[in-house]
Design a protein around this nucleic acid. Structure first.
Lengths: 377, 377
DNA sequence: GGACCAATTGAATCAAGAA
DNA sequence: CTTCTTGATTCAATTGGTC
């Protein structure tokens, strides 16, 4: 399994499909053009993001951020990136079966170019799916929101392709009998899953988590289906495809990535069916921001909060901070401040009055979490 | 407040800005071209989504889904939608202040066209932000994922605009002292907040929740700022802007929407200034020169400063520099020097001894800032 | 062994003001 | 314009060392 061959060695219309479960070495478009048309069920593509980074970025502790500055991510202009995108999307479309689907992942740097090109070429978008990261890199300079997600586009070959695979019931069953939504929560790829070389350096700068690929393939493919990844990299798509009983084809230019992916995939043991269910289940919900109580109308700006014994009182401001006199800060900071402590859980410390009784604002947080607040006002 | 006027009535270069807190009736581009250039701080735009619904959509019980099929949401092709998008984005860019920012919300039907056009016109994307819906409409046919989010793009006028407003500290304080992320959770607009006509029908098919606009405006604007919404609709942007002490300008073609928005905004009570005050961090505080600590007598020349763990020690000189042996320089340079780093914040690195404990010289700076030390010269 | 602490790291379009 | 100085800024996990 997963022999490597150069693109030139490929027999284009081989009836026994000897390119199955292999990595094709070479340029993405050239390799795609050698594959038989209408031969793959699902394409998962993680193309260069065209990050356009300028200069170094340091963390607050002055350590340097290891940026993605590889040559393969450098494009001269949006026009050049668009040309690249259209070329590989066009070649990919020829290879896709009429009822096959394509997934492309990207960030705000490139995903709008990809989405427009998909539409321009006749692909029909089914969903955009958001990968919410449990542990994204912070915004070190505090100049933007923490970039905590990436976007995937899922599309058919054309508008009239209605027979695509979507395992609706399996996903629903795996999601507490609720429809699987378009926002997915997964950690980034770290720890033992992340491929490292002998020196301990990461093999590939943008290795995707297997859990993400598992949900993609569980949703949109069936056992025995052929999954193509035109930017194979460290081979996550191949590893997950093999584990889930799918066949794969990878295209990759760099030998170092091919070597790492080959070894990785060789070590994969295909899973039995019952083991797959747990991988698609939903993840725990994260925190509730105090400001969301204000935004949802549960707490009005100007509301007075006190501790349970009414020793201290503070005023809620529209921006989600608490004010006492001229001082303001988070519910936690201000709770610590009045008590002269280093830390304080503002959710349980601060109370509001309801029916003559003092109740912790944690009660309101629970209402937001449980979805009891709909509409606000 | 919120008088309505026709675009033709508008005095383009009115010094008293009589278009403030009004709704301009007419075509979006025509109205934008009549506004003065570089006159608005924030634009929030909820353009038509170009939904390509093919025939009616029915729920499993055969009831018809009230889809967005209004005439204003029909475009013949992607090219037509792109032309429309470029036209209004270009007109909007002229009106935006050099350090102003724009928000555009959309779904997978149109957001990729919008994002590409933004980039093509020179806007610089800061973030894409995902609005996760707590209560999205289900996918009735079970053929796709439940479409549970919409996407907002936040961008500056151009790449070099670094002075845009982002209330980082307030957002962080409002979010349990953690950076605000790009995935936001809000309910869709229902219940009492949803505008209905006498017959109980929705006034506008895509009314956005006020909570969403509240976070947008709290994040990227300040009290008194001018907020423009070129697709005003039911006036959510104006209602929230008024409540948060911002000024607004709306553009809308349909009289029914203008009437509903006008009545809605008139009923809004603005918050008081204390509730609107927003937390600011060190960035907003006045600069204090280290030498002023010496001039005010807080630090005597010859004082020895050390880092918190007393690994290095330096001597304060009368000119405001630090000396270590024969080397001297600013508190920042010398802090960097001893640590072998490129940069260092001397205010938090260097400490002085007080009562047997090491305290950062930043504490002394705070005393100067708070006016506790009047000397200064 | 386990508890605790320090160090490291991840697809990043990450200053502002004065001279 | 450019160049220089000042000085503001991080979250979740994993890894590895020490007590």
């Amino acid at each position: 399994m997963s022999a490597i061959r150069l693109v030139d060695d490929l027999a284009p219309s081989s009836p026994n499909a000897d390119w199955m479960d292999t990595i094709l070495k070479g340029d993405c478009v050239a390799a795609l053009e050698r594959l038989p048309e209408k031969s793959v069920d699902v394409i998962f593509a993680d193309p260069p993001y065209n990050l356009q980074l300028d200069g170094d970025l340091h963390r607050p502790d002055q350590s340097k951020v290891d940026a993605v500055d590889d040559a393969w991510d450098q494009f001269e202009s949006f026009a050049a990136y668009d040309a690249f995108t259209r070329a590989w999307l066009l070649a990919a479309r020829r290879v896709l079966k009429p009822n096959g689907t394509i997934w492309v992942i990207g960030s705000y740097h490139n995903i709008f170019r990809v989405g427009s090109s998909l539409q321009d070429l006749g692909y029909w978008i089914l969903n955009d799916v958001v990968w919410r990261k449990t542990n994204p890199m912070p915004n070190f300079r505090g100049r933007r929101f923490q970039n905590a997600h990436e976007t995937m586009i899922w599309a058919t070959r054309d508008q009239n392709a209605k027979g695509y695979t979507f395992n609706y019931d399996a996903l629903k069953a795996a999601n507490d009998d609720l429809q699987m939504r378009t926002d997915w929560l997964f950690p980034i790829c770290t720890g033992g899953e992340r491929l490292k070389d002998e020196a301990g350096a990461k093999v590939h700068p943008t290795q995707k988590p297997e859990a993400l690929l598992a949900r993609v393939l569980m949703a949109s493919s069936r056992p025995g289906d052929v999954v193509l990844d035109p930017f194979f990299g460290s081979g996550t798509t191949g590893a997950v495809a093999k584990r889930l009983g799918r066949r794969f084809v990878g295209i990759e230019r760099e030998q170092a990535y091919i070597d790492a992916a080959t070894a990785r995939i060789a070590a994969v043991e295909p899973l039995e069916a019952p083991e797959l269910a747990s991988m698609t289940g939903k993840r725990a919900e994260p925190r509730v921001a105090f400001v969301s109580l204000i935004e949802s109308g549960l707490v009005a700006p100007g509301t007075l909060l006190s501790d349970s014994r009414r020793r201290w009182t503070a005023s809620v401001r529209a921006d989600g901070t608490l004010a006492i006199g001229s001082e303001a800060g988070s519910i936690h900071r201000m709770g610590a401040r009045v008590q002269g402590l280093d830390a304080c859980n503002g959710w349980t410390f601060w109370h509001y009055e309801a029916g003559g009784k003092m109740k912790p604002i944690d009660d309101l947080r629970r209402q937001v979490r449980d979805g009891m607040v709909v509409g606000g006002a």
